[in-house]
């Protein structure tokens, strides 16, 4: 029932992600302040910002992992307050932590999460995503025995397993070599239903600009610059990027 409702909304809703008046504090420290965002379906937004600017918090709020203090999030027309499970079904999330069980093999980890998503044809899906992240030969290895980069690839496989329409990526490039990132790009960008809506947080301007349809800079919980990749003023972007780096150091 939930899946039918979510699917019918996906057909009608032109916006992949809509955020209005989002605020989040931890204790007395505000992390996001009255944050607004719209992102069309199938577009890729890359969010830059120095440490502590609120990138990870934004992704955790979008993923429903955090509950906002105020404001509202809609993903494919589903409200994070009213239909969090419909959102969880439509998103794939890669955070800093790979979110894996270390004493389970790659296959067992993916099978567990596949069962939690109640997926059909699980064996085929597992073979498919392990192929995409080039971990077929490590299928029966325990997650704890994988290198950091391999764990990251397994985390990406877990995020892709249910073929989500939306991907939320927090520095997916960390631990991955350039070749792997280039190979992974097409699998991340497209689902079986078309282009994925992607929000990605990163410090890496090279990969960020390469993947982005839109870029945004986050500072102290608000967007200080946002532009589409096509209309972006490269000089202004690099000025802000350097400014952020200087502040960080």
């Amino acid at each position: 029932m939930i899946r039918k409702t979510a699917y019918s909304k996906i057909q009608k809703e032109p916006l992949g992600i809509r955020v209005e008046g989002l605020s989040k504090s931890f204790g007395a420290a505000p992390v996001l302040r009255c944050f607004d965002l719209t992102l069309e379906r199938g577009k890729r937004l890359v969010v830059f910002g120095r440490n502590g600017s609120g990138k990870t918090t934004l992704l955790k709020l979008l993923s429903t992992r955090y509950r906002p203090d105020s404001g509202e999030i809609w993903i494919n027309g589903n409200s994070s307050r009213l239909e969090p499970n419909a959102i969880r079904r439509s998103i794939g999330v890669v955070l800093h932590n790979p979110m894996l069980y270390e004493d389970m093999t790659c296959n067992e980890n993916l099978r567990f999460f596949g069962n939690m998503f109640d997926l059909d044809d699980l064996s085929d899906r597992i073979s498919d995503v392990l192929g995409k992240v080039n971990l077929v030969s490590q299928k029966e290895q325990k997650a704890r025995n994988l290198s950091h980069g391999m764990q990251k690839r397994l985390a990406i496989a877990r995020a892709l397993l249910h073929d989500p329409d939306v991907l939320l990526l927090d520095e997916p490039e960390s631990g991955l070599d350039k070749q792997m990132l280039d190979d992974l790009g097409p699998f991340l960008f497209k689902s079986t239903r078309g282009n994925r809506t992607i929000v990605m947080a990163t410090h890496n301007s090279e990969i960020g600009l390469k993947w982005a349809d839109e870029v945004a800079f986050l500072s102290k919980g608000t967007i200080v610059y946002k532009a589409s990749r096509v209309d972006m003023d490269e000089g202004r972007f690099h000025d802000i990027f350097l400014q952020q780096l200087e502040r960080a150091t």
Binding site: S63, T64, R65, R88, I91, V93, L95, H96, N97, P98, M99, L100, Y101, E102, F113, M116, A143, Q151, R158
Partner: peptide
């Protein structure tokens, strides 16, 4: 490895 987050998502 943050698997509680994975469970809650």
């Amino acid at each position: 490895k943050g698997s509680l987050d994975g469970l809650l998502l």
